[in-house]
Design a protein around this nucleic acid. Structure first.
Length: 243
DNA sequence: GTACACAGTCCAGTTACGTCA
DNA sequence: GCTGACGTAACTGGACTGTGT
């Protein structure tokens, strides 16, 4: 799909929304998870150098080697408490199915806060007759699913944006063509110069083609065109951004 | 004040189990 | 009964933060 294609240009095109960036209120979160798009949010496209744009988590120079220097216990060993392998399974991985009551209570809790502090986790685990680790895992997976769903919704929204902008671009291109034709009809002698530009960023070059109007005033041949282009106040639809 | 170790937590990605068509 | 797809519990590894020494 064209929208998803990356060009290896080092540029990042992102769609942002002005009003409701929902971030969970907890100390550990540093990634912009749980970004929610609301129907009324104004989309804004930004173009930035990859890795320079805000919100991009910088890769640690030590990533990939940090485990060598870690003196920590292995995670598996650390996280398995003494009562945790009591099922007697080969690798301690016996999957259980949460009951409907457990699931609905977890859901209720998740609605109130998508992360848990240790006390909440303990309390919930006691209430559900689960291990705190299970509650923690459930919340992690639940957050991941929420994010995945949100990503899918965002993707659909971006597709629609793309289609809308494509249509808009087509319409504006057509309008430019019509205005050029109109201008040619009004100033047939300047046909050659008039074909030079359609873009405000080229205006300076075009101004060299200005002529005297007989009163000694230099007239910009492209004043009409540049006025037309100044309609593009919206950066989303400004064709000069593509230049 | 700084450096280090450690515990705790997060996320992204993966694995593996249970269920259902 | 077998099988593949799917949902999800559980795991792994890296990164980060807070705390104690």
């Amino acid at each position: 799909m064209g929208v998803d294609d990356s060009c290896n240009t080092g540029l990042v095109l992102s769609l942002g929304f002005s009003s409701t960036l929902q971030t969970p209120s907890k100390p550990y979160n540093k990634n912009p998870s749980f970004l929610k798009l609301e129907p009324n949010d104004e989309p804004s496209l930004t173009l930035a150098l990859s890795g320079v744009a805000g919100g991009v988590k910088p890769a640690s120079p030590l990533s990939g080697v940090s485990s060598f220097s870690s003196g920590n216990k292995p995670k598996r060993e650390r996280e398995l408490s003494s009562d945790e392998d009591e099922e007697g399974t080969v690798n301690g991985r016996k999957k259980l199915r949460l009951s409907k009551e457990q699931s609905s209570l977890l859901e209720e809790s998740f609605k109130q806060h998508s992360t848990l502090n240790p006390k909440q986790k303990q309390a919930l685990a006691r209430q559900l007759n689960l291990k705190p680790r299970q509650v923690e895992v459930w919340f992690q997976n639940r957050r991941a699913r929420t994010k995945q769903k949100q990503t899918e919704v965002d993707c659909e929204f971006l597709k629609k944006c793309y289609e809308t902008l494509t249509d808009e671009n087509r319409r504006l291109q057509k309008e430019v063509q019509e205005l050029k034709a109109l201008k040619l009809a009004a100033h047939p002698f300047h046909m050659q110069a008039a074909t030079l530009t359609i873009c405000p960023s080229c205006e300076r070059t075009a101004a060299a083609g200005g002529v005297s109007d007989g009163d000694g005033n230099s007239k910009n041949l492209f004043s009409l065109a540049s006025k037309t282009h100044h309609f593009y106040n919206n950066p989303l639809t400004n064709p000069s951004a593509a230049c």
